[in-house]
Design a protein around this nucleic acid. Sequence first.
DNA 1: GCGGGCCGTCAAGATGTCATAAAGATCGAC
DNA 2: GTCGATCTTTATGACATCTTGACGGCCCGC
Lengths: 234, 234
Amino acid sequence: MSTILVVDDEPQIRRALRTALSAHGYATIEAGAGEAALDAAASRQPDLVVLDLGLPDIDGVEVIERLRGWSDVPVIVLSVRDDQAGKVKALDAGADDYLTKPFAMEELLARVRAALRRTERPGSAPATLRFGPLAVDLARRLVTDDGELVHLTPTEYDLLEALLTNPGKLLTHAWLLRRVWGPNYGDESHYLRVYVRQLRQKLRDDASSPVYILTEPGVGYRWLPDPDPDPLRT
Amino acid sequence: MSTILVVDDEPQIRRALRTALSAHGYATIEAGAGEAALDAAASRQPDLVVLDLGLPDIDGVEVIERLRGWSDVPVIVLSVRDDQAGKVKALDAGADDYLTKPFAMEELLARVRAALRRTERPGSAPATLRFGPLAVDLARRLVTDDGELVHLTPTEYDLLEALLTNPGKLLTHAWLLRRVWGPNYGDESHYLRVYVRQLRQKLRDDASSPVYILTEPGVGYRWLPDPDPDPLRT
DNA sequence: GCGGGCCGTCAAGATGTCATAAAGATCGAC
DNA sequence: GTCGATCTTTATGACATCTTGACGGCCCGC
């Protein structure tokens, strides 16, 4: 089941969206303002965001920009204004779609399906990724090493997930902090040191000759191996 | 450069779209009917399809369905009809977006950018530049030489990026210093000597007979080779 | 051929970052 | 309220990178 974050300052609109979405089998999270939306996107990791541009605290376009700093979650924008410039700005800031209020709920649902369909396909969502002796079940948040269950705290797991879902990519300190700790973080790189250390210890990795997590001094960290090809498929 | 397949039975609309798209740096292919569109999508492998639903031979929704049988290329639908049922049908058939005529060209372009941005991400377009044995993946910040990972410090990488994103161009000392070290620099050409030296060493380049970085005495440096053509495309 | 400037090369010190360990602070379960 | 687990914070030595200075070679003008 997919989880959708609904961001709108008007409770009755949130309610209408929640009703329609849950009737179609989606779980919903709600936020009434921009900061709360960013927090929720970080902590709850929704599969899609429905975002009203008119928010009380921060401009909707800024919400998109800040979200895109650490997340690729699809964003469908709602707006009362039908101006072209606003559409272009929101789409170029990183929105995936733009609907003008009032809109037909059927159309929103179809656009939600289209957006979710896109993120489903690539990688065909292999429930469990393997890297040599290491296996990570993303759906169950379970990690095993040589078949033995590795116990990770929530933060440790979030960090591991952020790393291994971007194999080969250099992830900066600020990106990792925002992705794991939330949008209000970015300078606390000592957190990363502590948690990378714990992860490496639990995965039997060595900082000086790493198999999994490579330190890029002054910049960030990099998950080294690509996932093993799925032996069940051909 | 991205290639866009424009499907519409009215030549003047094709012409308008072609003009606008090529003015923004896209290559265009055109088709006036459904069968021709499917042929073109198969043989030319466009990065995006702009599809008018009203086609003379087959229904636009059927075009989408048949296309989706073997391709995940993003499809933006254009239609004169504003009916909800049609939108839902087209989106559920596999379309990524739906615009009602008449539409603002600026909006279409923004939606094109949004659709292309999404497909950039996954492995399909690695965005990796090759220069003989050297491969630079700008998105992952990854440099390999003969398949071996080359470790670069942040400054070294920034300098490399500044050079190879301007192949053949003469880059002055002051320009490079400002680009890599920031706007308050410009006279410290000594820095460049040290870091160019380190880059050359790591890339196995020789100052006296350079393959990559050419010294232009008294002026600056020049990245010699153009990127190799992508062997995956034709 | 002589000197000055520019470049390439090397290496050492300064600076900041990282790995590691361990001590407080916080939170939730019971 | 106590306990255990987790998160946050702090301290220290080790390390990587950046900065800086020194030196020799080369080219060019004089």
